[in-house]
Amino acid sequence: MNTRTTHQPIIEMRGIEKHFGSVIALAGVSVDVYPGECHCLLGDNGAGKSTFIKTMSGVHKPTRGEILFEGRQMHFEDPRDAIAAGIATVYQDLAMIPLMSVSRNFFMGNEPTRKIAGIPFFDRALADRVTMEEMRQMGINLRGPDQAVGTLSGGERQTVAIARAVHFGAKVLILDEPTSALGVRQTANVLSTIDKVRKQDIAVVFITHNVRHAMAVGDRFTVLNRGMTLGTAQRGQIQPEELQDMMAGGQELVALEGSLGGTV
């Protein structure tokens, strides 16, 4: 699954620093992501995960450090630049619009048009057909393309958003805690979707604070703590317990874990 021996990293973040006024949110984070790998970014709340991926997706500009995309240095002015380059982000709560149909959501911002008498009309027939096809491939049975997204479960919504990003040519897919609000079976669906996407040679950056979810699909794991990288580990070289320790900063959790009987 890991093709890093033959490929260059698709995106390299070198020594990224981000300061908000006097607060140092990121103090020099370096991460590289290869095509076809699922790179898990772990960290507790406030570790700087969100700030880091927002830098990657063009929402924030780094205070210091450089971003190399396909070997070239990039300066994203806003998220649209990043999207145009092929970096798509799926946000946990803001992936879909519940009142709109699946097909309208799928093509939101990328509507196909067909000219009738010189006027570009929204090609709904095409949009509906493509949506149904893509949903079938992702294993979601829709009642029809006009079904409202509101009727889908949380996991299905994440899946639709991922399918959308892939369909519109994402090379790097950033998933911001896609499983944190989901039940067990829906989480399994989303994780299998991540696996499908990775097999299409797309780089997946999977943000989570759940070590089990990360271990299920991750090829490499980077732990952030207090705005710093605590290193990147290969799959198989690290135990879930070690990751958990690194995320929580170790010490405090050891005592806690004893009293909870290893349930955390």
Binding site: T89, M100, M108, G109, N110
Partner: peptide, 24 residues
């Protein structure tokens, strides 16, 4: 109902932030 812009109208009212994230 029949144009790209119409889809943007729905999107802007449905969830402005989600719409912005996909480039509307």
């Amino acid at each position: 109902t029949r144009t790209k812009f119409g889809n943007w109208i729905f999107a802007a009212g449905g969830d402005a932030q989600a719409a912005r994230y996909v480039g509307v």
